[in-house]
Design a protein around this nucleic acid. Structure first.
Length: 186
DNA sequence: TATGCGATATTCT
DNA sequence: GAATATCGCATAG
């Protein structure tokens, strides 16, 4: 499975994070792929201290901090030593909603995890989760779900300045928890 | 609803 | 010193 397949596959799956106060979980409704050789990907210029988690192999967390205020959660893809990953851009909150409202400071369900920075804040993701194995037992992991997923749409990625053209963003069509302008949610 | 801009910290040049 | 896989508030329509 390559990076694009993984980005598609992750839609409808559930991300779970157990913290001291309880369990936080949400259904993934929006992702973006950053495959091998993508100039917009953090691994493009080689391995550094910041992005080393991207090279761990498939199924690890890569947590990144940007714009002075936002963490972002990625799932690594490809083989060990190859830098590529999938950015989780939005969740539909399932469990621990009261905890998310507390950490985000808002009450509207739609505003809890719509957008990568909000998502990380709601799920209490930070550098401590960088490099965690998401397929093994631990506080943070990915679970499959029995629930049906709607049609999956694709679009250009959001917020990039390089390599804008490829349609490597995937989302569940019409789901109100998807981020971005309206035309990119339908 | 849509667009614009400043805040903020870490990394790389 | 510049750039950045963003957010929230401001303003205008």
């Amino acid at each position: 499975m390559d990076t694009l397949d993984l980005a598609h596959y992750l839609i409808g799956k559930v991300a779970v994070h157990d913290v001291a106060a309880g369990r936080l979980s949400g259904r993934i409704v929006e992702t973006e792929a950053y495959p091998v050789g993508d100039p917009a990907g953090h691994a493009f210029r080689g391995k550094t201290a910041r992005n080393s988690s991207l090279f761990l192999g498939r199924g690890y967390a890569y947590v990144h901090f940007t714009y002075g205020s936002s963490f972002m959660l990625n799932v690594t893809s490809e083989a060990r030593g190859v830098g590529a990953g999938v950015l989780i851009r939005a969740l539909q909150p399932l469990e621990g909603i009261d905890l998310m409202q507390c950490s985000r400071g808002v009450t509207r369900l739609m505003d809890l995890a719509r957008g990568p920075g909000r998502l990380a804040e709601a799920m209490r993701i930070d550098f401590r989760q960088d490099g965690v194995d998401l397929c093994a037992a631990g506080p943070l992991w990915l679970a499959a779900t029995e629930r049906n997923t709607g049609t999956i749409g694709e679009s250009v990625r959001i917020g990039l300045t390089r390599n804008i053209d490829p349609r490597w963003r995937f989302y569940e069509r019409g789901n109100p928890y998807v981020s971005g302008p309206r035309r990119l949610r339908e």
